[in-house]
Amino acid sequence: MKQNNNKAHKFGMVIDLDKCTGCGSCMVSCMSENNVPFKEDESNKKDSITWMSVYKLTNGKSFPDTQIVYMPRPCQHCGGKGDHGHSPCVSVCPAVATDYGYDTGIVSQIYTRCFGCRYCMGACPYHARYFNWWDPKWPEGMENYLSPDVSPRMRGVVEKCSFCYHRYQAARDIAYYEGRDDIEEHEYQTACTTACPAGAIVFGDLNNPAHQVHQIVKPDPHPDPRNKHVVGKSRNPKVFRLLERLGTNPKIYYLSEREWVRKAGDNYLDGEWDKIKNYHGATLSND
């Protein structure tokens, strides 16, 4: 599988945190694209389903030196250690309700298969997975806006961002129909990407040098010499990934000019950051 991978896609994203305004368009676009339900009180953020979630980070300093940044967090579509497809969540699902598409790099979630053990949620350090604690209910008449491209979920199963896989399916449909081998960059864009009014999100194939996302990220195809689990590290010093040191190998990259923001992407021991911050991205390991 992995051998004939040269044609395989690796869809990913780079989010420019300096452009992000925290406006929430990506969240709502995602919800309305993916038939995400809503309930009366959504202010308990720990049981509120938002595939795309926007975190607000501060630099921890006091007035007037305090700064904030917004960090949109979809599912990171981790490639897992060594980028072999054993994402933290995929490897633990006991019933294969989630798998890693080696052809796209996308982590799926199949609601009809999931029986709600929630192990994947425990495995995900990004809180990108959501459980349907309630039966989804739409106020009378509102089912009319549900999209047939995405299955509504039932109570008791886990759901998460799918990189709008149905858009990939639709794009492939056209390509098949027109007898093309593959799809163009613009044909497959996620709902959050197209909605972002600031253009902060760039989506595309990390394996394709022609794609914008590749050009910004410049992923290093080789394992990080200092941490063999880390593959695909960005060669752009302004780009980082969330919790890169864990070796989850997320496909969401973040871009920021601000050092404190880049530092917030991972955990560092005292003084560690200063030693490595100028190295592209930032990971070190003991091996």
């Binding site: 929430g24 709502v28 009378e140 509102m142 909605a195 009014p197």
Partner: peptide, 17 residues
């Protein structure tokens, strides 16, 4: 291209019971 969250959620106004 872009839109704000309120516009994107417009259908919720349309079908608001």
């Amino acid at each position: 291209g872009g839109a704000c969250l309120h516009g994107i959620a417009g259908l919720q106004y349309l079908y608001d019971p």
